[in-house]
Design a protein around this nucleic acid. Sequence first.
DNA 1: TATTGTTATACTCTATAACTATA
DNA 2: TATAGTTATAGAGTATAACAATA
Lengths: 150, 150
Amino acid sequence: MRHAALGRKEETAPQRSDEELVEMLFAVLTPIKRHFAETAGELELSPQQALALRDLDHPRSMRELADRLVCDASNVTGIVDRLEARGLVERQVRPEDRRVKQLLLTDVGRDVVERHHRLMFADVPLLSDMDDDDRRALGNLLQRMLSSRG
Amino acid sequence: MRHAALGRKEETAPQRSDEELVEMLFAVLTPIKRHFAETAGELELSPQQALALRDLDHPRSMRELADRLVCDASNVTGIVDRLEARGLVERQVRPEDRRVKQLLLTDVGRDVVERHHRLMFADVPLLSDMDDDDRRALGNLLQRMLSSRG
DNA sequence: TATTGTTATACTCTATAACTATA
DNA sequence: TATAGTTATAGAGTATAACAATA
């Protein structure tokens, strides 16, 4: 009863269960992820490859990239192999610790990242048409959800 | 300029770009999807298998299931093969059109779906701790986004 | 002819475990 | 010994194309 002032009718907003919210979040993300995959596909990138490239806006080790992609380090070997074979990424040994491979975007890689970004954000399904108030409100809610984590 | 009354300072809510909103939506969904995958894993289901089972709350053809999973029909053969091998799903020929395979949950399959649902919604990361006002507001926003599609 | 579902093929992603080279 | 990265392996998901059965 946080807002008794609203009265019994609860305005026009129904209460939402975890089930409903998860359902809607998945439904919203599905077309957005499809759009991400399709725009990556136009540049012949798999979704994981596009995510990896995006994460290399700063140089990172294989392990750091694995952590960011939330996958086992052994997977990153293959993902980076494929990106390196296309000249989008370079592996360099880090002199302070010769075990570590420093991953760097090449100029071509940086160009691909930028082209993907432009394709992706030229028009984002469900998002680009939102009005300013809703964008603000959604941003605040998501921010609050994210900052509620330990 | 929809709300001139707010004045120049725009309350405390910053405007949000598509980039920021996509970033935050992905960040919110990541732990939720991980939780979905982990709870499915406790029942030895892959995420796709868990989604397929959940979609079979009503009988569907292979093609309908493929449409719901947003993947090619040929993939569904393998997914359903694995579920059928474990006795969670049955294929039945539909008499009116003998080309169509009707997919039905078995009793065991239904039990697995219910157990996964309980594991999943016992506690949803980022979501279960939201207060009523935020749940309502988020539900409304997502609803509005979804209904804005053609 | 068109549609449903399957098979064949090939590639990507995924995790586990064993290995190497460094530290 | 511990860590960074690789390799080997196996399984699951993905798309394309060709095919059988049915409409």
